[in-house]
Each structure stands twice: as C-alpha cells, then as structure tokens.
Amino acid sequence: MTIFIERVGPLATVQDLGRDGWFDSGVGHSGAADRASLRLANRLVGNPEDFAAIEVLLGGLVLHADTHVTVAVTGAPAAAYLDNMPVGHASVLEIDPGVTLRLDYARSGLRSYVAVRGGIDVPKILGSRSRDTLSGIGPEPLRPGSRLPIGPAPRTLPTVELAPTTDYPDLLTVTALLGPRDDWFTDADALFRGHWVVSVDTDRVGARLDRVDGPPLSRASAAELPTEGVALGSVQVPPSGQPIVFLADHPITGGYPVVAVVLDADVDRIAQARPGQRLRFLRAVS
C-alpha cells in the first residue's frame, strides 16, 4: 500500500511526535510543529496519536494511493478536493484507488496535516519517522514522484467523523514564563508590552519577531553568555533585539540569552502563525 506524491507546495515533510532521549548526543526532538493538529488527524482516522503523517507548509499538495485509504486533513484550513469535488476540513475522507487528494493554499494558518489510517510507514531513525530540517535527520522532504508506504491499519477505529476547525485570530495572544536569563536585559518586561509581528524569517526552527510598538528588548551588557541548553518555546534574543521563539527543529543549545519561555500549550499556536501575524505576550505567574 503506497501513497504517490504528484505535487508539493513550498514544503511537505513526514512528521510524527518526534524523537526522545537523544539530547545528550546532540540530536533535537523535532516532530510536528503543531502537535495538536497531528494528534487530531490521527484520531480522526483511528490511528494512535503518535503515528507519522504529512506536514504541509501552506498547501499545494496533490497525492493519490494505489488502494482505498482513510484520510483526514487538519491544521491550517487548506481547501481540500477529491478529484474536483470539495470535501470538509477536519473530517474523515474515504479515498478510492487513483482518486487524487488536492490541497489548495490555506487561507489562514501555516501548516496542514494529512494523516492516513495505518500511518506513513517510512523507516524510523533514532526512534522517529520525523524529518529534522535543522540536522537533516529523517526522511527527505517530499517532492513530485515521492512514494510513501502505508502501515497496517491499527485495531482501533475512528471515534468521530468531524472535528471543530481551529480559529486563527488577527491578534495572537500567547503566555510566557519570564526567565531564565531575564536579568540580562535592562527591561525584560518589555516583552509583555506592546505588540510583535512574525517576520518572514520563520520556519520549523523558530519564528523571528519584529517589534510593532512598545519598548525595545535591550541587553544590560555586551558580555558573552556561555552556551547552554534551550527548550522548545524558548524566546531567545540575539543582539538585534528581535526575539526568536524556538519551534520543533530548534537547536538544543544556544549562546544568546533566553528572556522567557512560551508555555507548551501555546507553542503549537505560534507554529501556525504566518509572516505578518500580530502577536502579544502575556506574562505567566510562576
């Protein structure tokens, strides 16, 4: 059982929930940038939540299979079509052999997820089928002509046929816990005043932010910070003063101070923020 990729948009990769336990060897966690959307897609088709699926940047994916497949598309709401017939987002799709699934470009959000019952069964590398775009570990990004094996159907069955779609507001509000290096700034609370906008320099490694209004994030000194570990959601601030929120493929160490860390529940939302998205931070109470 095989999926055939006919066309891709800007980027499409195979992702599961990432690889654990390799930080001490210099290998990051990686996995789906929007974990909640991957989990939902898998639940819709009756897979365990950690099965591998296709992460699609913006849309533009066209595929077909050589057998009947059960598929769901979640995340950024790209209009989906079976051949030329429109079908619902975040719903269970039954696709006959040779029928194409086509995703238009998403109207909002950044990443869509295509799950198939049985999962994408490419070989695991260090315990995961995910592509890490920073290290180059994992299956190559998809291209026209790529073939993806489908795994055996699990014993579980889909429990829902349709899920609520996600709202992507004009102003994204996320919560962050100040520190651990907030003392490296003259006014670390400036992060929580005014608004930011996601720059064009955003990918699976991180989302760079530009200031819209409010005070700058200024360093208290020009001293060098020793390299130290950084976590998913870390808000690292280079000398430019433009914060970078680390996402799925972030480096495991960094040499710039981390002013705050976005709460885990909000990391998926930043992963769906496209360039031009306005954002503000709320301070979490520790």
Results as ranks from 00 to 15, higher is better:
I3M: 10
F4S: 12
F4V: 05
E6I: 14
R7K: 09
V8C: 11
V8T: 15
A12V: 10
D16L: 08
W22F: 13
F23Y: 15
D24M: 05
S25D: 09
G26S: 07
G31V: 04
A33H: 05
A36L: 11
L38E: 09
L40C: 05
V45G: 01
N47H: 07
E55W: 04
V56T: 03
L58W: 08
L61H: 03
L61S: 03
L63H: 01
D66T: 10
T67G: 03
H68P: 00
V69M: 08
V71Q: 02
A72P: 00
V73Q: 01
T74K: 03
T74F: 02
G75R: 06
P77C: 10
A78N: 04
D83C: 07
M85Q: 12
P86L: 10
P86F: 09
V87F: 01
G88V: 04
A90Y: 00
V92F: 06
V92C: 06
L93C: 02
D96V: 00
G98P: 01
G109L: 15
A115Y: 00
A115G: 04
V116C: 01
R117A: 00
G118T: 09
G119N: 10
D121K: 02
L126D: 14
S128A: 09
L134K: 05
S135T: 15
I137G: 11
E140I: 12
P141L: 10
R143M: 07
S146L: 14
R147Y: 07
R147H: 14
L148I: 06
L148Q: 14
I150R: 13
G151S: 09
P154K: 15
T156G: 08
L157Y: 10
P158S: 14
P158H: 11
E161L: 13
L162H: 14
A163S: 11
P164I: 13
P164F: 13
P164W: 13
D167G: 03
P169R: 06
L171E: 08
L178S: 12
D182C: 06
D182H: 03
D182S: 04
T186S: 14
D189A: 08
L191G: 02
V198P: 00
V200H: 14
D201C: 06
T202Y: 07
D203W: 09
R211H: 15
D213C: 15
P216F: 09
S221F: 07
P226K: 11
G229E: 12
V237H: 04
G241D: 06
Q242F: 06
P243Q: 12
P243G: 08
V245P: 01
V245Y: 00
F246W: 07
L247P: 03
H250G: 01
P251S: 12
T253S: 12
G255D: 06
Y256G: 02
V259A: 02
A260H: 01
D268A: 09
Q272F: 05
